[in-house]
Amino acid sequence: MWRDLRLLAGDIGLVAAKDLRIEWRARTTLGQVVPFALLVLVMFGFALNANRPTLELATPGLLWMTVLFATVVAVQRSVAVESTDGAGRMLLLSGMAPAAAFGGKTLAVAVQLLAVAVVLVPGVVLLYGAEIESLLLAVVTSIAATAGLAAAGSLLGAVVAGVRAHQTVLPILLLPVVAPVLIAATRAFEDALGTAAVNGWSWVGLLAGFTAANVALGAVAYGPLMEEA
């Protein structure tokens, strides 16, 4: 039992390290996703007429909407890594547990999304004049929300892997399912940024529940999807 868990954790680390190393070399996250996310912040500024009170009110929602866009891009990239030159066959033939492959890919996407959040939060402080009242709440919310987005994204990414229309189908599948993350992370950030009187920590609990449910779904459903690819 413990040995199995240790092996599982090792395989998850192996896959996550592989994906992160590939991302680091290709610089997709740093070179494209992060600038894209910052650009979205600037564009929202124009769209809302650079109105300070409006921006301040809308900051948490805009921030997480932007992370949602970044999720779609990051998941598409994560799927493409496996489909280029039949590379995904390596994991399939290795006999690694599908749950480990899912866990590793989820972890790698979560780390990238966290990096996006780490750039975006100072971005809203500088551009929208947001003020962080509870750094701890902001950090914990970011971790829980990005983990949930990565889990649901990686699973649904595997659903559309190898399909010609995957770039258009993924957002249709992913965005409705992650609606709770948008709601919960936005509310929690309203507390962390002090823009509304809500209890952010109870929303963190909902994020944790979402993440747990989708990690469990992925661990079960990733195997059949890998078989079909």
Binding site: V177, A213, N214, L217, A221, L225, E227
Partner: peptide
């Protein structure tokens, strides 16, 4: 299989929604 996973993910997440 693809559709079944979407069905399963949808069923579980609609509760959370």
């Amino acid at each position: 299989t693809r559709a079944a996973v979407v069905g399963l993910v949808g069923a579980v997440n609609i509760g959370i929604v």
